[in-house]
């Protein structure tokens, strides 16, 4: 079995898992929920093995390096971290239906990678030949993934809030399967509590690497600046928790804006702006 066919299986599993979560939200059938979860965890396992295989395959080609070096590898890793963070949240808090709002992100990443990105294993250019690459990419993407999960939860929160305003007490609607508003608000906060330290660590390891390789820990490169913008937004979110006025809907919006900034930091900077991170990671 090659990594590439395993990645295809992963994509398929995430697709079925997402559809399963949708069906679960509509039907409230416990079996469907369990199946969707099982598919998510199965996909995660397949993807873990695939990433390991790809790592091994790169050594077989004589250009061994961690599979974190280009846009394809990063988007695959991003989707792996999203399912991982969702899995941790699911094991701890048991709100299955959140999968319906998180799995689409993971599927989107895998589908984009598998369908339209160059998946060839390339040798590392000199700028990336460092162990810092692994630490930096892992911490950043775990952070991004936690923000993706927080964004999914915030969208649920807003849908629920809007629904409660327009048609309260409608027990038949899909929204009634969502966790309560304050639970979603709290889970949003908890996800960001996971993401923020990881993003901080990601920025710090990036600065340490930049200082080691270029002699400047900070050069206001667009990627660096955008990571700081993301950090500012979530710092604002965390401070907002202290004031009651910024909880609930406003916090949900801040979380969504934060994830939009995260996506721009990850993709927009590479695709639209020029700078030092031109290799697509």
């Amino acid at each position: 079995m090659t990594s590439s066919s395993l990645f295809n299986i992963t994509t398929f599993a995430y697709l079925l898992s997402m559809l399963g979560f949708f069906a679960f939200a509509v039907s409230r059938s416990k079996v469907l929920g369990t199946a969707a979860s099982a598919l998510a965890y199965g996909g995660l396992l397949a993807q873990t093995v695939a990433i390991g295989l790809r790592w091994k395959e790169s050594y077989a080609l004589g250009i061994g390096h961690a599979p974190l070096s280009n846009l394809y590898e990063s988007v695959v890793f991003f989707s792996w971290t999203i399912v991982l963070i969702y899995g941790l949240l699911d094991l701890k808090y048991r709100y299955r239906v959140i999968g319906a709002f998180v799995m689409p992100f993971a599927l989107l990443g895998m589908a984009w990678g598998q369908l339209s990105l160059d998946s060839g294993i390339q040798p590392l250019v000199p700028a990336l030949q460092s162990n810092w690459l692994t630490y930096h990419v892992i911490t950043c993407f775990l952070g991004y993934a936690a923000f993706a999960v927080a964004c999914g939860i915030s969208i649920m929160y807003l849908i629920r809030a809007k629904h409660e305003k327009s048609t309260p007490d409608n027990e038949q609607s899909i929204v009634a399967t969502f966790p309560a508003g304050r639970v979603l608000d709290d889970l949003n906060y908890k996800s960001i509590m996971i993401g923020f330290p990881l993003l901080t660590l990601g920025i710090v390891t990036g600065a340490a690497w930049a200082n080691y390789a270029w002699g400047t820990y900070w050069s206001w490169d667009p990627k660096e600046t955008w990571s700081l913008i993301v950090w500012f937004v979530y710092a604002a979110f965390l401070h907002a928790r202290i004031t009651r006025g910024w909880a609930g809907q406003r916090a949900a919006w801040l979380s969504i804006i934060g994830f939009a900034a995260t996506i721009f930091c990850y993709l927009g900077v590479n695709l639209l702006l020029s700078g030092l991170h031109s290799y697509g990671g």
């Binding site: 206001w220 667009p222 600046t225 955008w226 700081l228 913008i229 500012f232 937004v233 710092a235 604002a236 401070h239 907002a240 004031t243 910024w246 900034a261 900077v269 702006l273």
Partner: peptide
Amino acid sequence: MFTLITLAVISIIGT
């Protein structure tokens, strides 16, 4: 809140 959000928004200019 004002400083954090303003910093986030105006930092975009330089990118």
